[in-house]
Design a protein around this nucleic acid. Sequence first.
RNA 1: GAGCCUGUAGCUCAGUAGGUUAGAGCGCCAGGUUGUGGCCCUGGAGGCCGUGGGUUCAAGCCCCAUCAGGCUCCCCA
Length: 409
Amino acid sequence: MVDILPGEVEKWHFIESKIREIARTFHFREIRTPLLEDTGLIARGVGKTTDIVSKELFAFERGDDRYVLRPEGTASVCRAYIQHNLHLKGGVQKFFYMGPMFRAERPQKGRQRQFHQFGAEIMGSADPLADAEIIAFMVALYRGLGIKNTRLRLNSVGDPESREAYKKALVEYFRPNVNLLSDISQKRLETNPMRILDSKEPEDQVLIESAPIITGYLNEESAKHLRQVQKHLDRLGIEYVDDPRLVRGLDYYTRTAFELTSPDLGSQDALGGGGRYDLLIEELGGPATPSVGFAAGLERLLIACDAMNIPLGTQPELDVYIVTRGDDAKKWAFRHLKPLRDAGLSASMDLANRSMKAQMKEADRELAKWTLIVGDDELQSEQFTLRNMAESYEEKLHFADILKKLVGL
RNA sequence: GAGCCUGUAGCUCAGUAGGUUAGAGCGCCAGGUUGUGGCCCUGGAGGCCGUGGGUUCAAGCCCCAUCAGGCUCCCCA
């Protein structure tokens, strides 16, 4: 896990405000859920056989209750949707969220045990327009930041009927050659054959290349749904590639699945991904609510921005630093920070009784635009020295005029 | 969970075949300039050399373990 220090945190502010701004234009509304969730919710929501649940949860018990640090956001949003009867508010609900997630994995570039995701959900629509809307939102964020080097992959993992037919076909295809598969894929043939398609083991690649693809096994409704999503994306000018071998690691997806990747991320090349989950809310005990969503990694977004040399936030400037000489000046300065701050200026001063030279140096380091220099002379004449740090000129003014001048700028 | 690599000052890194008080640049602090930053000069502070154990007269350097990080695999964001 990592600390985000001053200098780095400004980048986060920049990205977070960009996300909020684009969410506003799409009219997604923010939802915040607890970092802790009931273990059962996550297990049922994400799927017991997924890697995330079976080996990556941070879990603990307290009394009879079992908790996990949330590994993703969708299950929590669904829980909140059910718990607060949000379907009764009517219409289609559009949410976005942003915050830390936790998975107990071996860390590497673009992968931490505590990481940050933003994501969005559209709940209560089975229409392909909702799929296109959620993808458009995700793509708009990356476009808005200027990240160009991305690829959107699109597929349908089918509804339960289609998927059963496809799984059967896959098992029939792989079974005769089971010995040629990697150990892990041999296991997956029993538990979750579609995951074999996601394997990167070299020995699996040959077989995967000529394996049957899901496209031919989609029933008419699922196939039509995918075609309509594609048409909507075409109309929006959003480029994508059809990838009939795209499968996702969470069990709740139905029909639409998509992933946005970037070659700038190295081995962990997924910026974000998502899909439709028409059955999840019902499975969790809520009303039948077809929904679609995505999640994206903020750390990976930052890596992609750096790779493209996209300027993010920088160290904040300081409006005024008051430099003092002597105890009376120090007292005067400490009192006069308030009117400066009340006027909306950022103002600071030496808090460690150091030399003028040290104070000037600190003002420089803190990117002060102005220094206000106060010593015996100034206190006598009530005319204070205002120094412009960038242009190195000074003038003597009454405090009221200094305030006026700085606020007026 | 697996493989390979790395871990020396706040940061970036040197440390020669194991041999006295572990170095540099930048940064930090102070002085040169007892009322003025950025340049320059001088000085200073700051390291149980990731942690624990072992080998040796002697370990930053060799061995083992462990923790953390990097690159892969796996998986995902």
